[in-house]
Design a binder for these strands. Structure first.
Length: 647
DNA sequence: CGGAGTAGCGCC
DNA sequence: TGGCGCTACTCCG
């Protein structure tokens, strides 16, 4: 087998980051690479001390063949340090191919290996483990600069050499399993997300400060109001448990003073005793039985229950309290998660969130520290602005990406035709159900049913979510399957395929497992793992069964946001690599965020739209089979991430 | 006092 | 029984 020219890299760093944000944060100004370990093309490691000999590592890495594939474990971490260390590193590595052993392992195992450690892989591939002695320095919070070099250097070299060997082993398996192409596209996507993490999102401090004051004021007012309303009933308004007891009753623990005797001086002797007392419900309203937790028996007091209660009770006081609580929850979320949560990640005016490639079962990316994929769509988004004076934030979204993925996977002719012709499938389905076109207000909630169905929901789940009769939800499912028959056929056939190709695997001790497992490989090389669940419901005679929703959804979500989007992230990254007027900032499943200089905006919008519209070409070129449909994209831009104008 | 589990809620 | 991550509370050791 011919291998790429692998060059393994590993950095040892200080550990000065903020505890909240994660120690060793690669973008924290107090952190730096202390040692860089680099292998040659045969896997032999060399170590360089960055402080005393800053030029050495640079020369080493720059002096190797331009055809090298740089590899590391959790490599974006090392890359960020290297980028900060020298522009030469940044230039060389960004132009090259990379191989992250953590990401490769994730793909090779059908997303079962998540955030693996180098030691886990060393165990699996049969290479030496890290020395305990060194691990203890790190666990004690000591950065690499505090570890004696004669101990650290051999450790660093071993990590580099082990990484190099694992990369080669993985490469071989990738070829054997037909996953090399997918892995290569994922590595390109990692180049893109590493660039995004390096760039960070620029924050408008003045807007953040003003918004903070606004939210704090609203929050305090709302909090005082709510506390006044329930001062006799609920001690902690943040406690769902207490709210549940208040609204719907239950058992409450209280502490009571109990006489346990008399002191010698004649005073009564007391002891605090915990007692359970029954609490009467405050409202005469019983929520849906499935709003009761199976595990704790606690009645939910979430948003849907409170709104349901508002519609069904005549208790004015309870209504006021519920309304106030809903408002309080909203403001509390804003303040804690977004205003305060985002603020603590500010570094020199930027937020450098982390994009994770090995976090999900479907192959989607995830985002942490902070999560930049769930910023609420309200004025908090105004704080995200361009890094350039007059610059613009640009967001490009795939149009109905998951519907396209569904059409591609199921090959349903009508669905393909509808999307290709620009037919609004939600309107079409509505008309098929009710005999007329929906109004704008009718269309919006109706649209959610289609997504539910794609996510794998059956009639029951749709009815519950939509708050409509079961018959209506069943009719929707029937209408959907009638218009798009191959979707229904695929749902059935795929479930059968999973069932029939599943086996009892063996665990680490070689014993047969209790649940059957199916490992399914898609045409892109993506593997999905399905495992049986214990089935305690009466509708099926089987003890164990596969989750219908997982089977319906994984291949769709995986293709759309696990295969196609990362492929395009890599493509876009390569197209933009030499441009200084555009920066990639973030990706949110079916969209990509950019920072663009003002004078480039017109051309950039045209360019990026064209790239998105050519997704089918890149897909076919890469995976050697056609995508059933062309994709389209919507572009919006603005001075901040909230006030965006659609092009 | 810290870790695990739960509830709730933000996004696609 | 679609996929995530963050904050707060609760329980337990």
């Amino acid at each position: 087998m011919t291998f790429p020219t692998f060059i393994a890299v590993d950095v040892e760093t200080t550990l000065n980051g903020n505890e909240d944000v994660g120690l060793a944060h690669p973008m924290h100004p107090d952190n730096r690479a202390v040692y860089v370990g680099i292998s040659d093309s045969s896997g032999k490691a060399h170590a360089y001390e960055t402080f005393h000999t800053p030029g050495l590592a640079e020369i080493a890495i720059g002096g190797y063949t331009p055809y090298a594939t740089y590899c590391g474990h959790n490599f974006s971490f090392d890359m960020l340090y290297l980028f900060r260390l020298s522009h030469k590193f940044k230039h060389v590595i960004q132009k090259a191919k990379i191989w992250d052993t953590q990401l490769a392992e994730y793909i090779l195992t059908g997303q079962r290996s998540k955030f693996s450690s180098l030691d886990e892989l060393a165990t699996k591939y049969d290479y030496p483990l890290k020395e305990d002695k060194i691990k203890q320095y790190f666990q004690a919070g000591l950065g690499s600069e505090k570890i004696p070099p004669e101990e650290l250097i051999p450790y660093l070299k071993q990590d580099v050499e082990v990484t190099w060997k694992i990369a080669r082993d993985q490469y071989k398996i990738a070829v054997e399993q037909g996953q090399l192409t997918l892995i290569e596209t994922q590595m390109e996507a990692m180049q893109a997300t590493t660039e995004m993490m390096y760039n960070g999102l620029h924050i408008n401090k003045a807007t953040l400060d003003a918004y903070t004051i606004e939210v704090v004021n609203e929050f305090v007012e709302c909090k005082l109001n709510l506390e006044e309303l329930v001062k006799d009933y609920v001690e902690d308004i943040n406690s769902p448990k207490q709210w549940s007891q208040f609204f719907f009753g239950g058992k409450k623990k209280i502490k009571v003073k109990e006489e346990v005797g008399v002191y010698k001086n004649g005073n009564t002797k007391y002891k605090l005793v915990e007692k359970m007392v029954a609490v009467k419900p405050f409202v005469d309203f019983k929520p849906d039985p499935d709003k009761v937790s199976a595990k704790t028996g606690q009645v939910s007091v979430d948003d849907s229950v409170l709104n349901d209660m508002l519609d069904h009770t005549f208790n004015v006081e309870a209504k006021n309290i519920a309304k106030s609580l809903l408002k309080y929850r909203e403001l509390s979320k804003q303040l804690s998660t977004y205003v305060q949560g985002l603020s603590k990640h500010l570094i020199d005016g930027f937020i450098h969130g982390k994009l994770n490639h090995t976090a999900t079962v479907t192959g989607r990316l995830s985002s942490t520290n902070p999560n930049l994929q769930n910023i609420s769509n309200n004025p908090i988004k105004k704080i995200f602005i361009s890094r350039w004076v007059g610059g613009l934030i640009v967001e490009v979204d795939f149009n109905q990406l998951e519907v396209v993925a569904l059409a591609h996977v199921t090959k349903d002719k009508q669905l393909i035709a509808d999307i290709s012709a620009g037919v609004d499938i939600h309107s079409a389905l509505y008309e098929a159900m009710f005999g007329r076109k929906p109004t704008k207000e009718e269309r919006k909630p109706f649209k959610a049913r289609t997504f539910q169905l794609i996510y794998g929901a059956g009639a029951k789940a749709i009815a519950k979510q939509a708050g409509c009769p079961l018959e209506e939800a069943q009719k929707f499912v029937d209408v959907f399957y009638k218009r798009y028959p191959l979707v229904g056929a695929w749902h059935q056939d795929f479930a059968k395929l999973v069932e029939s190709s599943s086996k009892y695997l063996r665990d680490k001790e070689g014993l047969l497992e209790k649940f059957k497992t199916c490992v399914h490989t898609t045409p892109t090389g993506r593997k999905f793992v399905f495992t049986e669940y214990y089935n305690d419901s009466s509708w099926s005679p089987k003890m164990y069964n596969f989750s219908p929703t997982e089977m319906k959804n994984y291949p769709i979500q995986g293709l759309a946001t696990g295969d196609i989007v990362p492929l395009m992230l890599g493509v876009i990254y390569r197209k933009l690599i030499d441009r200084v007027d555009v920066k990639m900032l973030n990706t949110i499943h079916d969209s990509v965020l950019f920072d663009v200089q003002a004078e480039s905006i017109g051309d950039f919008i045209l360019d990026i739209k064209e790239i998105f519209q050519n997704t089918h070409k890149y897909y076919e070129e890469t995976f050697k089979h056609p995508l059933a449909l062309k994709l389209n994209a919507g572009v919006s831009y603005g001075e901040n991430w909230f006030e965006m104008i659609e092009v």
